[in-house]
Structure formats: C-alpha cells, structure tokens
C-alpha cells in the first residue's frame, strides 16, 4: 500500500449489471493498489464479485464508475488501438483451461496466435518465440501439434499461461487458475506461476476461493463480500490477525489437516445473499454476530494498523 509506483491502481471502481431482480452491484466502490512484482490475492465466496473486479480492471468489462490506472496512466476510457496496447500489458489466465482454449487449435497455434496478432514478429521469430514459451512453461516439444482434448488439465493450464505471457505483459489477472486441478498438479502450476513472476517481473492479481493457495502465493490479500472490500492487509498480517468478522469466519472455515488442533470455528448464520439492490450499510450485517444499529450506515475502509484496512464500524469494539 505504499504511495509510490503502484503498477495497478483503482479508485472508486464500480461495475453494475442489470438483472431481472434489479441492479446487481457486483463491484461496488473499490479502491486498491497493486505494487509492481507483487501478488494481490483476492478472496471471497462465489458471487462476491471477485472475478468481475479482475475482469473490469483488465477492461474486459466497461466500468460503471471509477478509475483504473496502469502505471499512473488512466486507462478507464481507452478505446481502439490504445486498448489493444493496454491488453498486451494486462493479461488473464482463466479457471477452466478446457473451455478457454479453442478446441480446434493445436498447442502451437494457440500460443502463436497472440504473437501473430501483434504483427511484430517474422515467421522465423514466431517459431522461435513459440519454442521459447513452450520451454518456459514446461510443455514438452512432442505436444506441439496436440489439441486441448488430448492433454490433461495441468498441461492445458500451462498452454493458457504460455499464451498469457507471450507478449511480455506487466500484469496478469489469474482467475482461479488452479481450482480445477488435482493437488499434485496444482502444486506444479503454482510453482510455475511463482517462478515466472520472479523471472519476468510479473505482477499478479490472484482471484481464488482457496485460502491455502492464496496464502501461499500472495504478498497482500483483499477479502471481498458482496461486491465490497471488507479487509485488506499483507498476507502474514491477515493470517495472524483478522479484524473483520467475515474474514474471521472465512479463515476459520478452512478444514485443517492438523487432526490434533481442535477446530475453533466461527459459524455463520445463513448464506451469502445477493448484491442486487443492496441496502446501504454493511452487507455482511445480516450474518454477523456483532451487528448493531450502527451497521446499517455506510461503512468506510479505514487503516486500522499499518497497511491493514478494515471496513467495519465496530472493529475496535469487537477485537
């Protein structure tokens, strides 16, 4: 959260969708800074708006309100050729490598496509780049002509990663990139992502619901609930000292493999509701054990300790 040179900064970002029941406040007034060469983990349950946030930042959706700055430059409204340039710098890795790859394109064609689109490389250079990328993400050369259905999930995800890093982006939004993989393969892909970050100086936003994964890969973590940021802090700090009641419940819900440590679980009542036409005030209040009258007022994200921001008016009373 240092002031200087955040690679990505968003200010008051909103993304609303109109739906049958009203306006869905999927992303509602979020501020965030992501420093260069760091990973910002974004966690929350399904429907909390974490993927929408990521997709809005990389301009896959047009924001309803707010600003997106890339390297200090406002990219909220850029169009046409300028947007294409922005897209080269901001890439995405999708959750499901099977549905995000074209089933009729081979590994080679898939990786070559973005390079070709950039019109910067000769035919020979293209081949060299494809070789280099396949090597970087660890896809064996014999799979060059294979199609997505012929590969396992881990390899497919590696192809997605190769494609994302093809044009040397600065920022990659990783949208649940390992959720569809088995643990042994998941570990291989996580190691790869971290190695690439070191080698290429990448900045990640890592969206996931898996808290042990996010803890492993992130420098900072933001916790979202129904379109809003409820808490953000450096990873170690967040796992040591959760201040928002939702974060406490979320972290205590992770099943532990330590069979001797008795579970002290903060049980939540009810389920995540929806962000359609929300009332002002804390959206977590209906499920919160500490909710009072004051929680019906709009909440603001406040710095409670250094770099540790919480959006809860009762934070000092309950901690």
């Amino acid at each position: 959260m240092e002031e200087k040179n955040a690679l990505v900064e968003i200010q008051g970002l909103k993304k609303y969708f109109s739906s049958a029941g009203g306006i869905n406040h999927a992303v509602d007034d979020i501020n965030m800074k992501i420093q260069r060469r760091t990973t910002m983990g974004v966690v929350g349950e399904s429907g909390c708006g974490k993927s929408t946030l990521g997709r809005t930042i990389i301009r896959l959706y047009d924001p309803t309100e707010g600003k997106i700055l890339l390297d200090g430059e406002d990219i909220t409204e850029v169009r046409g050729r300028k947007l294409r340039k922005v897209r080269e710098r901001m890439q995405i890795i999708f959750q499901d490598p099977y549905s995000s790859l074209n089933p009729r394109m081979s590994v080679e064609e898939t990786i070559r496509e973005p390079l070709k689109e950039s019109r910067r490389f000769s035919r020979k250079e293209l081949e060299e780049k494809v070789d280099e990328l396949m090597d970087q993400v660890g896809i064996e050369d014999r799979l060059r002509l294979s199609y997505p259905h012929e590969m396992d999930g881990g390899r497919r995800q590696r192809v997605g990663i190769a494609r994302a890093i093809a044009l040397n982006p600065d920022f990659i939004m990783c949208d649940e990139p390992v959720s569809a993989l088995d643990v042994s393969i998941q570990a291989q892909v996580l190691n790869l992502l971290m190695r690439l970050q070191d080698r290429l100086g990448l900045t990640y936003m890592f969206v996931t619901h898996d808290l042990s994964v996010v803890r492993h890969i992130s420098d900072n973590i933001s916790v979202m609930y129904l379109g809003q940021l409820v808490e953000t802090a450096p990873t170690r700090e967040l796992f040591r000292n959760q201040l928002h009641p939702y974060t406490k419940a979320l972290l205590s819900a992770i099943p532990s493999i330590d069979i001797d440590r008795p579970m002290q679980r903060v049980q939540l009542k009810g389920e995540i509701t929806s962000a359609i036409n929300p009332k002002p005030g804390c959206r977590f209040a209906p499920r919160c054990l500490f909710a009072t009258e004051a929680c019906n007022q709009p909440q603001t994200l406040t710095e409670v300790e250094k770099d540790h921001f919480v959006s809860c008016c009762r934070v000092n009373e309950i901690n």
């Binding site: 349950e45 399904s46 619901h209 808290l211 419940a249 979320l250 205590s252 819900a253 992770i254 099943p255 679980r265 049980q267 939540l268 389920e271 995540i272």
Partner: peptide
C-alpha cells in the same frame, strides 16, 4: 461449495 457453506 464455498468454505463457509462447506463448514456448515
């Protein structure tokens, strides 16, 4: 399911 729902 999400973790908090999984816990329930």
């Amino acid at each position: 399911l999400d973790v908090t729902i999984q816990a329930q």
